[in-house]
Design a protein around this nucleic acid. Sequence first.
RNA 1: GGUGCGAUAGCAAAGCGGUUAUGCCCCGGAUUGCAAAUCCGGUUAGCCCAGUUCGACUCUGGGUCGCACCUCCA
Length: 477
Amino acid sequence: MLKIHNTLSRDKQDFIPIEPNKVRMYVCGMTVYDYCHAGHARVMVVFDMVYRWLKASGYDVTYVRNITDIDDKIIKRAAENNESIHALTQRFIDAMHEDERALGVLAPDHEPRATQFVPQMLEMIAQLEQNGMAYRAADGDVNYAVRKFPGYGKLSGKSLEDLRAGERVDVADSKHDPLDFVLWKHAKESEPAEVKWESSWGPGRPGWHIECSAMASEILGRHFDIHGGGADLQFPHHENEIAQSEGAHQCQFVNYWMHNGFVRVDNEKMSKSLGNFFTIREVLKKFDAEVMRFFILRAHYRSPLNYSDMHIDDAKSALTRLYTALKDVPPSLPIDAIQIDWDVPAAKAFKVAMDDDFNTPEAMAVLQGLAKEINISKSRDVANLLLALGGVLGLLQQPPIRFLQGGERIVATLHLTAPAPTLEARGEALDIDALIEARAAAKQAKNFAEADRIRKELLAAGIVLEDSAAGTTWRRA
RNA sequence: GGUGCGAUAGCAAAGCGGUUAUGCCCCGGAUUGCAAAUCCGGUUAGCCCAGUUCGACUCUGGGUCGCACCUCCA
């Protein structure tokens, strides 16, 4: 039985879907005005893992992850770049999709863009106004009246009093309550036509929070199973989503709220505002994308995750161990042909871990255990299981040799880039196969000094040789 | 100030009221021409103070420290 930590109740609960065998899930995606950073990578990978596990558990899953393509920051950035909103957002949507593909993140079933759902948002705002929960302020904005929603604060565990006590910003006078938030922003002269929509409250554009409420209910219905996002969205974004959706529809919005922990740098949250972020593409220049994915899944999704090159290197070593086992004992079947027998102890342990609020660190330990078993028994059945369970997490799906030898650079003749001080300096290409052959000849002639010299030369270029009965193979250090 | 979360070995990170987490690093051994990989074994734990218990890293209470949210943020 799958248990999920529900932010709403702050404990683990048995997961019971609204409709048997079906799961409807919504995750807050990116605001597309810049490249995604490691923090975004975590949301993508974590909920991709959730999506995969739900499917592996036999559920028919509908996964929606939205794109916010209209927002203050987007307007500002487009103006700075002297670029249209659409050109800017499309550029970063494309970049985001590239990052996701690299990280092994499956496409969600729906990827709605806010700008495509403005009519639904307007409809919802009208419903809220009709229910007496929205009002038109003096400045022309339409606001949500938090006082009118009795459950306000139930997700974040805050009372209106607590929230007001902590109010740290000057409040617009036009709001009835400092915590009221904008549903519809009236258009400003300075803004481009591209961000103005007609409405019964005059031209304007939607507030951020209403976007998700409208997209989620339009695609998944007014009441669905799982809603996810980063921990920072808990308040106010998700709190406001509840207020909007339940205020408009008068029924429960979401059964299970899931929030992933932050990526940190030097023990501080990685964020745009702090400026301490690394974009996904920066990281992928240094590491295989699968290492990044592995690094993220090595921690529990709700724990903080410290980012540093050292920690990613650590993850790389651990993942290398798994791939080494698969290289030495190749699975006998392709992934699609492997039927996982969940009664096998290791598979069972994996399932128990995953069913316990997606305990991927524990599941990873099972994979390491399988690697050891493979190394000892050389069992191809066990290799099949490792490949299959890895696949459930979106891992271990490259040919081992490709991972170990460095991605696309599988060709025997390498034009080395970064880690090749000696050869690089001479601008030479390194013919690994030829050097391995030369070394084999030297070994044959018992010229170990020469053999070792060649090995050292390759090592200096980041190439590790491994001799075995079957011959010599190489991998990247 | 309010609210919430956390503190595990050199590093990272889980479970668990009593039995090896796991990975990386380190040490010894096997193997190897020497290495690498692999295997066998080993060293390093549970912030502090009380309490509950036959027994606590695990439960309870009190500290201390850290982080997050309360403002756009994954």
